[in-house]
Amino acid sequence: MVPTSYYLILSAMIFAIGAVGVLVRRNALIILMCVEMMLNSVNLTLIALSRQWGNLNGQVFVFMIMAVAAAEVAVGLAILIANTRHRESINIDEIHLLKW
């Protein structure tokens, strides 16, 4: 049986890669994908720990996260499309109106 810590390390690596991706990419779609990846790494952590403690709570959590992630993707993609209609671009650097 593979020790839980291995899974945790793998999860941390995927999380870090996703986070760096969010920060360095400019394509909003790819940023969205990286966010999904980070969520999945957390899912992995939860499931690994669910096994570690012999408790189903973690798996229920993951289920909830999946529901939220699905909702998030649906809304996020809709926002992206609306934004693209507006300014013909999905470059995150051109979405700079948050200071108003």
Binding site: S5, A19, R51
Partner: peptide, 26 residues
């Protein structure tokens, strides 16, 4: 990112080495 990874790995290696519990419950 590297800093985060290093911190998390360090914490896992330091504080997480007990074997899994009884998995039949799940």
């Amino acid at each position: 990112g590297i800093l985060l990874l290093a911190s998390l790995s360090y914490s896992v290696f330091q504080g997480f080495n007990q074997p899994p519990a009884d998995v039949t419950a799940i």
